[in-house]
Write a protein that binds this DNA or RNA. Structure first.
Lengths: 181, 181
DNA sequence: GTCTATAAAGCGATAGAC
DNA sequence: GTCTATCGCTTTATAGAC
């Protein structure tokens, strides 16, 4: 039920998906769908909460860690990739939210909190001296997690590359760059 | 007119924006809008073509260049950032297209052509020996341009950082990485 | 738990007056 | 070039039978 809805939300977009679309994909009528969920918006809220809970826990672990910020940043990059792979549908929808309803506005607020925590971590790592200081840390943070988040648009788990390999590739590219060492 | 529509498409999403929304933002009625445009879909098509034309020309320049692939890749990364900044609205909408209409399907086809050309360039640069060969070139290409594309979600041209600075930051991060040299 | 039927509102788009 | 009015359709959501 939720899985069918999420699949359509991703393929067509939340706004372009009607309850009737969801019903048809399950070979039932609209009324049958409304027996299980109270509204289309609530369906979205459940998925967004799944994504936000997972990302929160990844970020909280990094924030509360004791080691050097650069190591905690490396860990949260890897953890984020794992979360995006394990909860790809939910995170994909979260990243597409516009703020068109109370549910979406609340999700955006929680997301901004996460983004701010990640930016703080990058700033800390730069101040530590572990990361380059010649570039704006806030811009670096946005680019870094923009790269991480972009993988929801193309990664397919059934392929040849595992979540673990992907996390290593992302971390290697982000920290060491494209150029041959 | 087009500008008002695009602003709303970006703020609320194309599907969640009605012709009446556009009309109200211009303080006219729906009919006045339809006097200037033939359909909501045509409005979207014009914007997507703007973005695709610009990206095409950036990629074509890199593809037809004569220097080393790694230099042409550096150039196309910089040029891409400049295009995303100069045509941010159009590119933002392009990156959000789902394929819900003929217009959107056609745009996705053109976009895939561009992505393939960029992936070829990354492959070439790896074969040349200029870029690291320990990571999958196709994955590198996706992550690199995922990072580039992600800037449409946060960059604001009125701020303190110029398009040129941003292009330098993106290139520096992508090629040399986060770690202090 | 699923159905038919329907309400109430919004949608894209058009006709025709001014 | 903008308006009022309207068509035809789809939307979210509910009522009530089985």
């Amino acid at each position: 039920m939720l899985r069918a809805a999420v699949a359509l939300f991703i393929r067509k977009g939340y706004d372009a998906t009607s309850i009737d679309d969801i019903a048809k994909s399950l070979n039932v009528t609209k009324s049958a769908v409304y027996h299980h969920v109270s509204s289309k918006e609530q369906l979205l809220a459940e998925v967004l909460d799944e994504a936000l809970d997972e990302l929160d826990s990844a970020v909280d672990a990094a924030t509360r860690g004791t080691g050097p910020a650069s190591e905690r940043l490396r860990d949260v990059v890897r953890r984020s990739v794992e979360v995006l792979v394990a909860h790809q549908s939910a995170v994909t929808l979260l990243l597409r939210v516009h703020g068109n309803s109370d549910t979406e506005v609340a999700a955006l607020r929680r997301r901004r909190r996460i983004d701010r925590a990640l930016a703080s971590l990058v700033n800390e790592a730069v101040e530590e001296g572990a990361l380059r200081a010649d570039l704006d840390p806030d811009v670096l943070s946005r680019l870094l997690f923009g790269m991480v988040n972009s993988l929801v648009e193309w990664y397919r788990p059934n392929g040849e590359i595992s979540a673990d390999q992907l996390a290593s590739t992302v971390a290697a590219l982000a920290f060491d760059g494209l150029v041959r060492a």
